[in-house]
Design a protein around this nucleic acid. Structure first.
Lengths: 349, 349
DNA sequence: GAGTCACTGTACAACGTTGTGATCCGGAGG
DNA sequence: CCTCCGGATCACAACGTTGTACAGTGACTC
């Protein structure tokens, strides 16, 4: 373990700096010298001490990714994409879980743990618009998600309102008029729930459908269990409905479960559409229609933007907001009605 | 950003070492001095440079976790548990994805990227028993998974054979005799697939049921899609069967999908049991019976073992193998038959 | 033959921190 | 009055690396 440049230098009979030069591909080295050094490196099994290199260079080659919970499919898949994108740029990723808790998110932003990384990709869930200023941190930060807009940092996110509207209109186009909505956060204006609810309402309004409180299923958590609970609540009210827009796929799966328990057929009696396009959605029974929010693009863009901030700092300009394209993915739970190929009819952006 | 001990020391009018002492809770500091220093720290917003600290101390406070793919539910949930366990020990986690590819796994083991971490939790998938010796690396390493046994490192894993046998016996206890198996890796002896197949065969044998090649659905990948494909293959053979043991939950979900497409009712016509107890399993329709392999315990134990290796090195003794307890979780897809509470009947270990 | 230049290699300092030992001081003990 | 001790603080070196500045060594130009 303790093999250093010194050891290599001694064995090769050169100075420590020459070894360093060999490793860093400094051009002016005599082939004979290079060979001697390389042989010594191989013989001793030397590997550079990245900590020392980081200290010297000011760069660690690592970025941090903070998400609420990796056990949530959307964030697991996001993390998978981020790690892959980072690797392509030669970066490694340190993953933190906040549990979506505001205090932990605040603490994380202040934590010196990130002195070990070059920057942070932060998927906030507990923070709100009023917390925008705490994002003004002395290290590169790229915000993900939809809790804070127009903050002091770069922001990579999705078109929640437009996508939710498209999802709802997908149901309307299929002739559904009584569309329940699951996963609402009451009183929320921004945040995924607030924005997606807005898209839902816009779609109703655009088609002259009245908004009906009785079709709203609130649920703070967005797990399968809470989706099932919210759905059961709506079912218990006895109001008629023929479709469900769930604020994410996980909720949708819970809702489908509750519908089937209640003897409703999907999509015959009730069409269901979700949001996120998690892998799982295409293998459920029935397969889940959903919104593809452009996860890959978000991951790549977020890593790219962060890297630019790391390398160029404020020289890269003021804070940017980058929006992913989205698409309606029509599957069994809410098939497209007309024979126009769904891909053509539904892709937006 | 560039606030260092020097800056704090200058402002507080003390030496840099005194500031360091304050930060590290060195006992002999006059209260007045401590206060001066703390005020200077607050005023400048100083946070320690962890890279420098790491270089000096030889410890980074980070561990690496290498898994095949975070988009696979089991590994996402494992990572979630590992990160939580690490945090409880004051560690952060750097996550790598290998794609289950042998070459990438080999490269990862040699990579100096881990000089930035204190040790590695390695969930191998591409390596095999013959690669055991490459695990003999000059840094603390704890192996997860079931690709290599009796290697040169600590190993935290599950009781694959016994658990698979218990899963199969759960089906047999319900009166099923024609039990298909999905996700087999042909020719594999160890590895999850090999071991779980062995458990399956042991159960059949113990109950005098002949092993039938026609009921075997091979599949290298363990995704939903491959589960569905393997199941369709078995269905296409036209052989009768009344149950399925899937080598993991994801396969089981794919298999259930294929069964329902083919008009078979679960569990009436075909009972299904999986393996892993991913979160999702309890919310599918029908909910999935499965094996709970003790994921939390594995995560906690792996982190604890790695930490012990980091702190005590070889003084902690020779390589250990640690096995998690498991339990049969009976749900709708393969309910327990007798009225004995499943929890009592099924918990093993 | 002197001056210039490209090439090759070196010595030294620095990144920010902490361990080691030294120093200074006041008070207790002889 | 001197010694000794422990509290409080500091100077220095070191962790392993790389940037800067510089020193040789030839070869080439004029």
């Amino acid at each position: 373990m303790a093999v250093t440049l010194h050891d290599v230098a001694r064995l090769a009979g050169v100075s420590i700096k020459t070894v360093s030069n060999v490793i860093n591909d400094y051009p002016h080295i005599r082939p004979a010298t290079r060979e001697k050094v390389e042989q010594a490196i191989a013989e001793l099994g030397y590997t550079p001490n990245l900590t020392a290199r980081s200290l010297r260079s000011g760069r660690t080659g690592a970025i941090a990714l903070a998400v609420p919970d990796l056990a949530l499919a959307y964030f697991a898949e996001l993390a998978a994409s981020v790690i892959a994108a980072a690797e392509a740029s030669g970066l490694v990723v340190l993953v933190e879980q906040t549990g979506g808790d505001r205090d932990r998110e605040l603490e994380l932003l202040r934590s010196p743990r990130f002195k070990m990384t070059d920057g942070l990709l932060f998927s906030a869930l507990g923070l709100g618009q009023d917390d925008a200023e705490v994002l003004d941190v002395p290290y590169p930060l790229v915000l993900l998600g939809e809790r804070i807009f127009d903050g002091p940092t770069d922001h990579v996110t999705m078109q929640n309102v437009a996508a939710a509207r498209a999802a709802t209109e997908h149901l309307i186009a299929a002739g559904r008029r009584r569309i329940a909505v699951v996963g609402v956060h009451e009183g929320e204006v921004i945040g995924s729930a607030g924005l997606r609810l807005r898209g839902y309402r816009e779609a109703l309004e655009a088609h002259g459908i009245a908004f009906d409180e009785a079709l709203v299923g609130p649920s703070m958590a967005w797990h399968r269990e809470s989706g099932a609970r919210a759905m059961r609540e709506i079912l218990a009210r006895g109001v008629p409905f023929d479709a469900v827009f769930a604020m994410n796929d996980t909720l949708a799966l819970g809702a489908m479960r509750a519908l089937l328990e209640a003897g409703r057929r999907v999509p015959d009696d009730v069409a269901v559409i979700g949001f996120d396009n998690i892998d799982e959605a295409q293998y459920t029974v029935p397969s889940l229609s959903t919104i593809d929010p452009g996860r890959e693009w978000i991951a790549n863009t977020a890593v790219g933007t962060l890297l630019e901030r790391i390398e160029r700092g404020d020289a890269a300009g003021g804070p940017r907001t980058l929006l992913a394209d989205f698409a309606v993915v029509a599957r069994e739970s809410a098939p497209a009605v007309d024979p126009v190929p769904a891909a053509i009819a539904a892709v937006v952006g």
